[in-house]
Design a protein around this nucleic acid. Structure first.
Lengths: 158, 158
DNA sequence: TATTGTTATACTCTATAACTATA
DNA sequence: TATAGTTATAGAGTATAACAATA
């Protein structure tokens, strides 16, 4: 450890100082960092079920009764349609979901969950909920509701 | 368009139905979708300055006076130290930042912005602000403050 | 002609391990 | 012995264009 001379201004140690920098006030950055932490926690919680946030989301939409087409999944999850193919391929190989051709438009595949898919989803959802609860430990119930409401405005701006 | 028989339940068209599914209520998903939109908007706004959200963040922290080490940058931005190397390499080649070896610890590099870096940052920040304002168009000033406060709890949970 | 799903491909991003110089 | 930065590399994620089947 070198001695500090008068000409060397002391540097604030650690990342605590950065938190009060320009970026620490920036909404986009806070959003990105909060999301990164949330995603990491979710992926690690879902790993024991052989899922990630992506495949969990697809499974969730299959379990729900709207029977989305792959195109709708892609738009909703903000993925390219070609990525949805790979995600569904994996889930279908594991017999968690099935592709059914939409009788109203035979070009389109409608996604439905199998019983095994519903069962796995129920278990995975518990893990995801626990991880989310952990992430939200420092946030009051009122603030959680506020956060959800405001994020919905950002996520669906129409 | 095939005629619909009685046995075929009508499928809600479009993604509007998905919004009220299990996922549409999920905070992690809303966070991910809001962040995806924010990131896309930021990257496209910063492109004219030759920056992306990542390099803009690094530049912002260099401009700010805390003179962070690369290690601190990596931790704060949740990047691997090896990724920070590449980001700084690019900015340094463009003479926007400089690496200075920390006199207190000659292993560490401290990042400082050049005058050109500060000038570019000021311009880029304007573009970023405009993009963020656009994203937040539907959110009241009170809700923006609430959002920032709550996101800070999630982003820095200590 | 336009759209859905698919395939192929390239590009970026991310994660890991090893190396060097300093501590 | 441990840490900061660097390099190399492989894996995951992303974006784009072209194709077959259907509208």
């Amino acid at each position: 450890m070198a001695a500090m001379t008068a000409s060397e201004k002391p540097r604030p140690a650690g990342t605590a100082g950065l938190r009060h920098s320009l970026l620490g006030e920036d909404l986009s950055f806070l959003l990105a960092r909060a999301n990164a932490l949330s995603l990491t926690a979710a992926n690690s919680a879902l790993a024991e079920h052989g899922l990630k946030a992506r495949s969990f989301s697809v499974l969730a939409l299959a379990v729900y009764d709207t029977r989305p087409t792959q195109r709708e999944l892609a738009e909703f999850l903000r993925l390219d349609p070609s990525q949805v193919v790979a995600l569904i391929d994996d889930l279908e190989k594991r017999h968690l979901v099935e592709r059914r051709t939409d009788p109203a438009d035979r070009r389109a595949n409608v996604l439905v969950a199998t019983d095994a898919g519903r069962a796995l989803f129920a278990r995975a959802q518990e893990s995801a909920r626990a991880a989310e609860a952990d992430l939200l430990a420092g946030v009051t119930p009122e603030d959680r509701q506020r956060l959800a409401r405001i994020l919905r405005l950002l996520a669906f701006p129409d």
